[in-house]
Design a protein around this nucleic acid. Structure first.
Lengths: 206, 206
DNA sequence: GTTTGTGAAACGATTCACAGCT
DNA sequence: AGCTGTGAATCGTTTCACAAAC
């Protein structure tokens, strides 16, 4: 089952959200065409995406909404909760800590770190901001699945190395730099400046 | 020059950041290989990316750092400033308003809207939060290039239609929904839940 | 009759490899 | 000799189209 395109996984995640909506509206079955329309893609694309993982539909009928949702949750690894540490208690970090979607989707923030003495010791959503020196100690003390990096660009690589050194295998990176990590570590970078620049490109070239 | 892949544009934006670094270090020329290494890609990729827009290098030598940087700024449409409105003065909105990278890269936030009476009238980084009812009026009064949407999911589509109705052609969307807009409007969606789910997928399937 | 699941075809992006310039 | 610029080859993804299932 290896080697499924990133674009496919992202679409699965979208489909799951649509299924949740459909389920909320009491819809029982859904066709690949209906999912496609909601997601701005084609029915063939939907079926192909799903086909990498099995065949979940009934011909002539479509997919049972709750069943397909359940399958997708399983495929995406959402049948469990994840323990997440946040590194950087600045503006974006603070917004993320309070973001409901995190917890709702199964991601629990279990520690927050910063190196600013003014922030260390303050309370964020029930968690005390810890000094960054305590990073290794805390990662050893509690099992952690992911790190969210919200540090300045200069600090990001070194922090990444420290969390990777403690066995963390997934990083969500908001620092505007390209992180260098071993092959068995997954990094997703969200780079705002880059998104803005693709918009400015699109506005310019029309 | 039409029809350049999104992935190409994103890489150009990365290269530009590397060139800024190189320039800061006083490096005068740079090879496609050097840029490639910094960006985790290949020299052929770098040259192909640039070749869509012209030939900026000298054979046997590489590229003049300041010249190539200048060219990339031009290609990406960064030779001017953009006027941006922010819609939604919640946690993420507030973090974004204060984010330095916005202004640094040429994007000026010129108005902020919300529908929460508790927020309307408060000051955000020198701007007064306006009631969302004033949206059309303000968009008419001042030329605006982009809208950043930081509303709840339910509100996003309707707000998008309102800004598009006033002629805005670019939207940066942080609401976790798929926006439906006319073909001549560009939307970039940053969907946190989706990024988290690709990470969880990656952690699960190894 | 409807809709899935999937090989095959079409399309698009990346990599190769080398001729041509400096 | 070194490095770019670019057609040609390769690889990966999306779309087509239809037989099989209900």
């Amino acid at each position: 089952m290896r080697k499924v395109a990133d674009s496919t996984v992202r679409r699965l995640s979208l489909y799951l959200r649509f299924l949740d909506d459909f389920e909320g509206q009491g819809v029982e079955t859904v066709s690949s065409e209906a999912l496609a329309q909601r997601g701005g893609t084609t029915s063939a694309q939907v079926r192909k995406d799903l086909s990498f993982f099995g065949s979940f539909g009934k011909r002539g009928l479509g997919y049972y909404v709750p069943e397909l949702a359940q399958r997708l949750r399983q495929i995406l690894g959402l049948g469990r909760r994840y323990r997440v540490v946040m590194i950087g208690a600045g503006k974006i970090g603070s917004a993320l800590v309070q973001y409901r979607g995190f917890t709702q989707r199964g991601f629990d923030i279990v520690a927050i770190f910063d190196n600013d003495p003014a922030k260390i010791g303050t309370q964020w959503n029930g968690l005390t901001v810890l000094p960054i020196d305590r990073l290794e100690q805390e990662l050893k003390a509690q099992q952690v699945d992911m790190a969210v990096l919200v540090t300045p660009g200069e600090a990001a690589q070194s922090v990444a190395e420290r969390v990777v050194g403690q066995g963390v295998k997934a990083i969500l990176n908001f620092a505007p730099v390209q992180l260098n990590v071993p092959d068995d570590v997954v990094v997703k970078t969200v780079n705002l400046a880059l998104e803005l620049e693709t918009l400015s490109y699109a506005l310019t070239n029309r």
